[in-house]
Amino acid sequence: MEDVRCIFYGRQKVIQTSWTDANPSKRFLSCPNNGCNQFAWIDPLMCSRAMKIILGLLKKANKLEARLQTRNERERKLWICLVAL
């Protein structure tokens, strides 16, 4: 990829990935300066079916991660109780 620089700050843009509901897993170039809102999409638009599938998988993964965290907290509490005996 060619050297693409921000026109406002002169810094080289970085590739990031959007995980919003409107643009799941879509890559874009953006300025690394947090105050700069300049960006450009890299990936083409996805069909609506692909977006629904990706969003469904993301929601499922988030739900599983939350369940795992809850179980890990319970296990830690049980170990504390067991050691305290």
Rank of each mutant, 00 (worst) to 15 (best):
S30Y: 00
V14T: 06
K13D: 02
M46L: 15
K59V: 03
L57S: 08
A22F: 04
N37A: 11
R76T: 14
W79L: 05
L82W: 12
L64H: 08
M51I: 11
A61N: 06
C31G: 02
P32A: 05
R67F: 06
I42K: 01
L45H: 03
A22N: 11
A66G: 11
E65C: 09
F8E: 15
S25M: 04
L85H: 04
Q69S: 14
R74G: 07
V4M: 05
V14F: 11
A84E: 15
I80C: 04
V83R: 11
L85M: 10
I7D: 14
A40P: 03
A40R: 07
F28G: 00
L45R: 04
S18R: 02
E2H: 12
C31R: 02
K60N: 10
N33W: 12
M51F: 01
Q12I: 09
N23S: 10
F28N: 00
S30I: 07
R5P: 02
K59C: 09
A40K: 08
K13N: 08
W79N: 10
P32Q: 09
N33D: 12
Q69F: 12
M1E: 07
R5Y: 04
R27Q: 14
Q12Y: 03
R27Y: 09
G35V: 08
D43R: 05
L29Y: 13
D43N: 09
C81S: 13
R76F: 06
W19R: 14
